[in-house]
C-alpha cells in the first residue's frame, strides 16, 4: 500500500538546528533586574516623571540666576515692562482736587502731600495719603479716591472749633470732642466760643460744653471754665466769683447754683466762691470786705439790741 503521507525523502523533515532549539533567553544582570524593579515602583516613577523635570527646571533657573548681571537684566526688564504699563495715559493722575476744606486747610494739605503731577496712579498709596491728610489737626475725616479723568479727589470734613482752650501751649481751638483744631492768637479773636482753662481741659471738653450750655442764664457773667486737678470744673464768673463743681454730676450742681441765684440773687452778693464740691454741704466763701462788713454790723447790732437780731447776709 502506498504510504498515506506519501513517499518522504530522507531529510524531508526540517533539519533542527541546536541554535534554533535553544532560544536566546539571557538572564538580566543583578543591576538591570534591580533597575527594572525600581522603574516599576510607582513612587519612583512619579519622582521620575514629576520630580526630575521640576528639579531640572529649578536647577537651570538657579544656574541662570546665579549671575548678578543676568539677575539685574531680568529685574530691569520686569521694571521696564511694569513702567510701560503704569505710564499709560489711562493710569496717569494729572491734578489734585480738595473739596470741603477752607483755603488754609487745603494749602496745608497740598503742603504735606508732596506729589509731583502728573504721576501714575500705581504710585499713589491712597491709604497713606488719607492717613497723612487725617493726621492734620483741622481735618476730621477725609476720603481719597482717583476720579476718572486723572484727578486725585480728596474730600475733607473739617473739624468745627467749639471751644477755646488756654492750655500749656497757649490758646488753642478745640472741637466739641476736645480734638485740636488749630491755634488762635488771642481770646478776642474768637469771642463767640467759650473759654476753658487748665491742664486736662481738652480731654473733658465735651463735658465743659455741656456745662457752658447749662450756664446759659449766667451767660453775661461767665468768663470761662477752669479744669481743676484734671478732675472737676470751676465756673469762673466776673468779679472773680467761682462756682466750684463736684467731679460727679457737675451739671446738676451748676443748675442748683443757678436756681439759688435766681431765687435769692446769690451771685449778685459779695461772694468769692460757691463751693458745691460736697453736694450735701454747699458752702459760701465771702470776700474780705464782706466779712468785715458782717462783723461791723454784728457789733452794731450787739451794742444796740443784744443778741436777738441775726445778720441778714449769713445763712
Amino acid at each position: 500500500m502506498q504510504p498515506l503521507k506519501g513517499q518522504r525523502r530522507p531529510g524531508a523533515h526540517r533539519p533542527a538546528r541546536p541554535d534554533e532549539t535553544l532560544r536566546s533567553d539571557p538572564a538580566p544582570s543583578r543591576l538591570r533586574y534591580r533597575m527594572h524593579r525600581l522603574m516599576l515602583t510607582p513612587r519612583f516613577r512619579f519622582a521620575l516623571r514629576v520630580g526630575l523635570p521640576l528639579g531640572l527646571m529649578l536647577a537651570v533657573g538657579a544656574g541662570y540666576f546665579a549671575d548678578q548681571d543676568r539677575r539685574d537684566a531680568v529685574r530691569l526688564a520686569i521694571a521696564d515692562l511694569r513702567a510701560s504699563i503704569e505710564e499709560r495715559p489711562e493710569f496717569m493722575v494729572e491734578l489734585m482736587a480738595i473739596d470741603g476744606a477752607r483755603d488754609q486747610v487745603a494749602e496745608d494739605i497740598r503742603e504735606i502731600l508732596p506729589i509731583d503731577f502728573p504721576t501714575s496712579s500705581f504710585d499713589l498709596d491712597l491709604d497713606l495719603i488719607r492717613q497723612e491728610v487725617t493726621g492734620l489737626d483741622a481735618v476730621e475725616r477725609a476720603t481719597v479716591r482717583i476720579r476718572p479723568g486723572g484727578v486725585l479727589q480728596i474730600d475733607v470734613t473739617e473739624r468745627v472749633p467749639a471751644v477755646v482752650w488756654r492750655g500749656p501751649r497757649g490758646l488753642e481751638l478745640l472741637d466739641q470732642d476736645g480734638n485740636r483744631v488749630g491755634p488762635v492768637f488771642a481770646r478776642s479773636a474768637r469771642p463767640d466760643l467759650p473759654l476753658i482753662v487748665g491742664r486736662g481741659a481738652d480731654e473733658a471738653a465735651s463735658e465743659g460744653l455741656v456745662l457752658v450750655a447749662a450756664a446759659e442764664p449766667l451767660k453775661d457773667r461767665l468768663r470761662g471754665l477752669v479744669r481743676m486737678g484734671e478732675r472737676r470744673w470751676d465756673v469762673v464768673l466776673d468779679r472773680d466769683q467761682r462756682i466750684m463743681l463736684p467731679a460727679k454730676n457737675p451739671v446738676q450742681a451748676l443748675e442748683r447754683a443757678i436756681a439759688l441765684d435766681q431765687a435769692q440773687d446769690l451771685l449778685a452778693r459779695d461772694l468769692a466762691a460757691v463751693d458745691l464740691r460736697n453736694p450735701r454741704r454747699p458752702t459760701l466763701r465771702m470776700t474780705q470786705n464782706a466779712v468785715q462788713e458782717l462783723w461791723r454790723i454784728k457789733n452794731v447790732v450787739e451794742t444796740a439790741d443784744g443778741d436777738e437780731t441775726e445778720p441778714e447776709g449769713e445763712r
Binding site: 533567553d25 539571557p26 538572564a27 538580566p28 543583578r30 538591570r32 533586574y33 527594572h36 524593579r37 516599576l40 515602583t41 510607582p42
Partner: peptide
C-alpha cells in the same frame, strides 16, 4: 539568574512591581 529572568519578564508584562 533563572528566577530573575522569569520574574523580570512577568513584571514587565504585568507592569507592576
Amino acid at each position: 539568574r533563572a528566577i530573575r529572568t522569569a520574574l523580570q519578564a512577568a513584571q514587565k508584562m504585568a507592569q507592576i512591581r
